[in-house]
Structure formats: structure tokens, C-alpha cells
Write a protein that binds this DNA or RNA. Structure first.
Length: 738
DNA sequence: GTGTCACGTATTTTT
DNA sequence: TACGTGACAC
């Protein structure tokens, strides 16, 4: 077979990585050095040259997006589907293991996944039940504590008994939380990893099976692995020495959520025979940009060391703009974007990057006024929306009535007269009898001790659930969902709500029905794990429990929260935080808000370890740029309603001046928020200017406060005399200028 | 049981 | 400034 296509167009280190003999390998891949390409080509090499069966390969990523991309690229390179290969996220693969071995993992068959929001609500409820003062013991902190423990592989019983009062109290919450989860068959994200680690650790037969099966394990973004993920990998790899990991210590920006860069260093210790390769040739950025970025990251003392270079042109220097204030910064950025587009480029070749989400607002307003379409990354995703989670809570309760978290959510949404007092009774009963809320509610209704009204409301809810559950098995998934949003009154509730977003919510619920229809249509019924010829499968069952469509959809909803914005097809300027920019590249990049206290953020600038991470973040931002990089800072900035005067970021001083060109600013710029110029451009954009009086058929007279978005999704913020300030979709608002 | 006001607080985000 | 939460009133 001709395999030259696998190695064609690769540089020496890339080729060496791809064609290395079996054995563990650590590839330190700098930004833009073709990391994913190496991973994908390595897989092709394993299959087409080394003759590995596709089912013998496990490829792990962090995000669903990365997994999808890798899968797609593997398939197009191989010219065939990935077959039995496992390509997925850590969580996705852990989930798969737990579904296949739920009994051995000690889980109920219908276990459900809690996302962070579900987890938070549950923890909050538990803190309340434990009578903890929220000010003294914030539930957020408890959540953080629990997840940290799990990420480190610690169960409540592993906690230090003689610990400080804080750890003691948090440990108690952890214990209680875990017992509620266990009783209800609830598994949070960290639990997926921890429990699948324990499964492999405690079941030598199962471990043996997967060790024999996965002769090759490949890991992307290895610098982002946390302790339990690395432990899981090591366990699965065993003595096979078959880990091929790719990462970049300079792009480790998730330490704050448990990622351990140290894993890279430990990897060399744990696998002394490992081969180390560096990919340092960059195919993305111009020479100046690269040198500037190198200079910044060189200030981090604890690096493995790497120096990116390019064969390409030096390009322009890095442009530095000292803005008068944040309004001027936005003005400048938008002016440059406009110029860039006038030169014939696409808007989507441009990205505005910032440290924190709050910074996006001004850019959005300015882009709107300039009539430039844009897209903001991040924010609420489809399956995270409140109304969707409400509907999902009913579905989960149908799938598993023991699920207390879903019971709490569904029981009085839409409001049906089941109040705090009644619920308190249910909780107390469930607590006393160690049963689920579902069963507790049944007992109370049957016991007849409840006030008449409460009893009626509660039994109404129970009947409703039973009615839906009994019919559930005979319905297609989308029919079931359709029935749920109708019968529960959710749809009606949002339709009637006079909250401006009510109609949006109804539409989202309808979209949920579509999503389920689509899901059952292209759901991969992954029953066929090719295990017959594999060793070790005789002592336990695999895949004996293919999930039913409902369970499988619910898992999908929790593991893959969906996109935040659907209409990505338009040619848009891209707005995102530095964190979400990782892995992307743009010809023109604006790195904004380079001010002490903002970037590096004041919450990180004291601690040297966190400061290094901020610097890596800066490095990530700079290396997103292909052709042109603009870095901006503002001399003054309005933050939390106050004026701040910050020094330019220390990172700016770290860029040698030879790579920088200062862009001259306007000598004087006033705050042009309500300046005639600004209002004039709004007028052109939307037909309304700021401060314009308008008439709405329902809300009456009001004043335009601001406007954002573009085209069909343009919205205006109007302060109505009668009903106060509201955001309205321009396309539907029927506003009349007065 | 639901709506309104005041208060406090304020990175980064995926699974 | 703006949002979410919590106390309080209807």
C-alpha cells in the first residue's frame, strides 16, 4: 500500500513523531506547529503501516469540538470511517465505560449525568438542609471543594479527619452530597472520571480487557490533564508503554480548574524510555509576531523550553495602541477592522480578544453602530438554558424517578401551588426514611397528613408524572418530549409569561423537540462494540445494556451542551475571551485591555504561579495572529461603574521594542458615549439613534438606550415610561419613531 | 406562593 | 454599571 501521503509535506520532527516505532512518546508542540495534524497522521500510520486494527486505538481530547474535528480528519485521511476506534473526550469515554459496566461500577442502570449547574443546585440544597450559613459557607466553595477532591481522586473517607474546621465542614457536605448522588443514581462530571478510574483499578478483569484492546492511546492537549485523568491514562496504558501524548506547557491556561502542567514533566519520569520531540516550526504567524510572543513567554521561569521559528516572512511589527479610554479603544479597533474589510478581507478573518467577558459589551455596541456583523463566543448554550433544563428535568424524572435533583426542579415549574412548606415536608420525610423525594411525596400524599390544598397540588404532580411515564415507552422520543412540554404546562407557562424572553423560550422548547427528532434520526446505536475476538471478555458482560433512546439523549444533552449561537454562517467579526481563543487562528487579531489589574488580572497578579499562567494566556493570545497583531491598552477605563487609571500591562514591557510599532492616537478624545457622532451612526445602523423617542404598540412611549446585534438579530434597549427598560428584537418590535 | 426592591459583588470554562 | 440573590410584602 502506498503510504507516502501520510508523510508528505511534513517537516523532520513531525515525520519522526508520526513514524516512530511503538512506545511512549511526548510531543511538545508549540502553537501553530501542526499538532493535530501529527496526531491524525500518527493514527493513519498506526493503521496503514503498522497494521494496527482500528479498534485497538483510543484517541482522547478535551472538548467535543476537538474530538469531532479529529474524527473528521482521520476519516478523510484514511478514506474510511473510524470504525471501532474510540475517539472522544475524557468524559465521553469515561461515560462509555460506565454505561458498559454500570453494574461493576456500582451504578444503577439508568444513572444520570449532573452538569455543573445541576450540581450547584444540589449542593446548595444540601447546605441548606445542613443549616449552613450561606455567607460563611458559600455553596460555590463547597462545589469547588468537592470537585477538587474528586479531581485528586479523593473520596470523603480519604479526607484528613484532623483537618481544619473548613475542610471538616466541607468534607461533611461532600459526604452528604455523595450519598444523595449515590441514592439517586447521579453522576457529576468529575465523578465520571473518578468512578471509571476506580472501575479499572478495582476490576482487574475489566482493566485487562481494555489494556489488551487499546494497543495505542493518543492524547491531545496533554498539558490540560488533571490528576485523575492522568492516573486514568496510566492505569489504562499499564506497562504497554503505548501513550502518545501531545501538548504544550506554554499553553497551559487551565491550572485554575485543576489542570496539572506538571503531568508533562511527570510523564518523562513515569515513562523513562519515552521519546521526546519538539515541534518548533510554526506555520501560522509572521516572524515579528512569533519573536514578540517568544520574548514574552521567555519570562516564565518554569518552562520545558521551546523556541518557535518560522520560515515565513517577518511581516509587520506588532502594533501597539495606547487608547485614551475603553471607548477610544473600541473605536480604534473598529476603525482598523473597517479598513481591513475595505481592503477586501473577510470579517471572519478578524478576532477581538479580551481577558474577561465584561469587556465584550463595548465592542458589541461599537460594532453594531458601525453595522459590522459580529459573533460573540461563550455564553449560555442550548442545553444550559433554563427552559430546556426544566423540560429535561421531567424527562430525567421519567427515566429515573429517584433523581432528586430533577424532582426539585420539576416539582413546581411551572408553578402549580407546591410551595416551600410542602416541599420541606417532603424533604423531611425522605430524609427520615432515607428514600427519594419521589417516594417521599407518595408517602405523604397517601399518609393523608398534608393540608388539603398541598395534598391536592402534590398528588396532581405525581399523577401527571405517572401518566407521562406510563405512556413513555410507546412513544418516539420527539413525541414524548412534545407531550412533556405540553402536558406539564411548560409551554403554556412561558407563552403567558410577560417576561420579554417568553416567546424565545417557547421557541427553544420547540427546538428541543426538533433536536430529539434529529437525535433519534442520526443517533449512533453504538451497540456493536467488537469484542468477540478480544481476550478477557468472558468474565464480565460488555455493552449488554445499550441505552434506551431517552437515556442516551439525556446523556448527550449533559455531555455536549450544544452551541451558544446558531447562525455562525454569516461572515462575522469574532469576539471571544483569550481562553476560548485557544486552538484558533486569525489573520488579524486584536489583543485588548492590556492593563495591570485587568490583564494580568488583579486576582492573579500577586501569586507568581498564577502570574505565569496569565503570561501563558498572553502568549496564547499573541500566537493566534497570523498576519497582523494589534495590542491595545486604555489609560483609563470604566469598570464596575467607576473610573480606573491603570498602568500598561507588564507584558507589554516584555516585548522588545524592535518588534513593536506604536500606532499614534488622536491627541484628544472625549467620552463619546452620547456624542453626536455616535448617535448619528446608530441612526444609520438601526434607523434609531440613542435617545430617540419611540412608540411601541403594547408598551407605549419610550427612549432608545442602546442597540446591539446586526441584521435579523438586531436588538434595541428601550426605556419605556410605562413598563421600564426592555430589550426588543428590532425585527419584531414594530417600533415607531416619534 | 408570587412579585418587587435592595443589596452585595464583581476572572478565565469545559465536561 | 449590572446582575443575581435574598429578604419582605401582597
Amino acid at each position: 500500500m502506498d503510504v507516502s501521503h501520510i508523510l508528505d509535506d511534513m517537516n523532520d520532527p513531525q515525520r519522526e513523531a508520526v513514524s516512530a516505532p511503538a512506545g511512549s512518546m511526548l510531543v511538545l508542540a508549540g502553537a501553530g506547529s501542526g499538532k493535530t495534524r501529527v496526531l491524525v497522521h500518527r493514527i493513519a500510520w498506526l493503521i496503514q503501516v503498522m497494521g494496527a486494527p482500528s479498534w485497538g486505538i483510543l484517541a482522547v481530547t478535551f472538548t467535543n469540538k476537538a474530538a469531532r474535528e479529529m474524527k473528521g480528519r482521520i476519516e478523510s485521511l484514511l478514506g474510511q470511517p473510524v470504525g471501532g476506534m474510540w475517539v472522544g473526550t475524557f468524559h465521553g469515554i469515561a461515560h462509555r465505560l460506565l454505561r458498559a459496566h454500570w453494574q461493576e461500577a456500582g451504578l444503577p442502570r439508568e444513572f444520570q449525568i449532573l452538569d455543573s449547574d445541576d450540581q450547584f443546585r444540589l449542593i446548595k440544597r444540601i447546605c441548606r438542609e445542613m443549616n449552613l450559613d450561606e455567607a460563611q459557607w458559600p455553596p460555590r466553595q463547597a462545589q469547588w471543594f468537592i470537585n477538587t477532591q474528586k479531581d485528586e481522586g479523593r473520596r470523603p473517607e480519604h479526607l484528613d479527619e484532623g483537618g481544619d474546621p473548613f475542610s471538616k465542614q466541607m468534607g461533611a457536605v461532600y459526604r452528604e452530597y455523595q450519598s444523595v448522588c449515590n441514592r439517586g443514581g447521579l453522576v457529576d462530571f468529575a465523578e465520571l472520571l473518578l468512578r471509571s478510574h476506580e472501575l479499572l483499578r478495582d476490576r482487574p478483569d475489566i482493566l485487562h480487557h481494555y489494556r489488551e484492546r487499546f494497543q495505542h492511546i493518543l492524547v491531545d492537549e496533554f498539558q490540560d490533564t488533571n490528576s485523575i485523568q492522568y492516573a486514568w491514562l496510566r492505569l489504562l496504558a499499564g506497562k504497554h508503554d503505548n501513550l502518545f501524548v501531545v501538548g504544550d506547557d506554554d499553553q497551559s491556561i487551565y491550572g485554575w480548574r485543576g489542570a496539572k502542567v506538571e503531568n508533562i514533566r511527570d510523564f518523562q519520569k513515569d515513562y523513562p524510555d519515552t521519546r521526546l520531540l519538539r515541534l518548533e516550526q510554526n506555520y501560522r504567524s509572521t516572524g515579528h509576531i512569533l519573536k514578540a510572543a517568544n520574548a514574552v513567554i521567555a519570562n516564565n521561569p518554569s518552562r520545558l523550553g521551546k523556541n518557535l521559528w518560522t520560515e515565513g516572512a517577518e511581516g509587520e511589527p506588532v502594533n501597539l495602541y495606547a487608547a485614551f479610554n475603553e471607548v477610544d479603544e473600541a473605536r480604534f479597533v473598529i476603525e482598523r477592522i473597517r479598513r481591513f474589510v475595505e481592503e477586501g478581507h473577510r470579517r471572519s478573518e478578524t478576532a477581538i480578544l479580551y481577558r474577561s467577558n465584561a469587556q465584550s459589551r463595548l465592542f458589541e455596541e461599537s460594532l453594531f453602530q458601525a453595522q459590522i456583523p459580529y459573533r460573540v463566543y461563550g455564553g449560555l448554550r442550548f442545553f444550559e438554558r433554563a427552559e430546556i433544563k426544566d423540560a429535561l428535568a421531567y424527562l430525567r424524572l421519567i427515566a429515573n424517578p429517584e433523581d432528586d435533583a430533577s424532582f426539585e426542579r420539576a416539582v413546581n415549574m411551572p408553578p402549580r401551588g407546591i410551595g416551600a412548606r410542602t416541599l420541606e415536608g417532603v424533604r423531611a420525610h425522605a430524609r427520615d426514611f432515607g428514600c427519594s423525594l419521589w417516594k417521599g411525596a407518595h408517602d405523604l400524599v397517601k399518609g393523608g397528613a398534608l393540608p388539603k390544598r398541598a395534598s391536592g397540588a402534590l398528588s396532581g404532580f405525581l399523577d401527571l408524572m405517572e401518566q407521562m411515564s406510563s405512556g413513555a415507552a410507546d412513544l418516539a422520543l420527539d413525541e414524548l418530549v412534545s407531550q412533556v412540554i405540553a402536558v406539564t404546562g411548560l409551554s403554556e407557562h412561558f407563552r403567558k409569561s410577560r417576561d420579554g424572553r417568553g416567546l424565545d423560550r417557547v421557541e427553544n422548547l420547540e427546538e428541543l423537540v426538533n433536536a430529539t427528532r434529529q437525535f433519534s434520526f442520526d443517533a449512533p446505536l453504538e451497540t456493536g462494540v467488537e469484542t468477540e475476538d478480544l481476550p478477557g471478555a468472558d468474565t464480565f458482560q460488555i455493552g449488554e445494556t445499550a441505552e434506551n433512546p431517552l437515556s442516551s439523549f439525556l446523556s448527550h444533552a449533559a455531555l455536549e451542551a450544544g452551541e451558544s449561537q446558531g447562525d455562525a454562517f454569516e461572515d462575522c467579526v469574532q469576539l471571544m475571551t483569550l481562553h476560548s481563543a485557544k486552538g484558533l487562528e486569525f489573520p488579524l487579531v486584536f489583543l485588548t485591555g492590556l492593563e495591570e489589574g485587568l490583564f494580568p488580572h488583579s486576582m492573579s497578579s500577586e501569586d507568581p504561579v498564577r502570574l505565569e499562567e496569565e503570561r501563558r494566556l498572553c502568549y496564547v493570545g499573541m500566537t493566534r495572529a497570523m498576519q497582523q497583531l494589534y495590542i491595545c491598552y486604555a489609560e483609563s477605563r470604566r469598570l464596575h461603574g467607576r473610573e480606573h487609571y491603570a498602568l500598561p500591562s507588564r507584558f507589554l514591557r516584555e516585548i522588545p521594542s524592535e518588534f513593536v510599532r506604536e500606532v499614534r492616537g488622536r491627541p484628544k478624545v472625549t467620552r463619546p458615549v452620547y456624542s453626536p457622532a455616535a448617535t448619528r451612526s446608530t441612526e444609520q445602523a438601526s434607523g434609531y439613534r440613542l435617545g430617540q423617542r419611540v412608540l411601541h404598540p403594547k408598551f407605549g412611549e419610550g427612549v432608545v438606550l442602546s442597540a446591539e446585534g446586526q441584521g435579523g438579530s438586531a436588538r434595541v434597549h428601550v426605556n419605556f415610561e410605562a413598563v421600564g427598560a426592555k430589550w426588543l428584537m428590532l425585527a419584531y418590535a414594530n417600533l415607531e419613531p416619534i
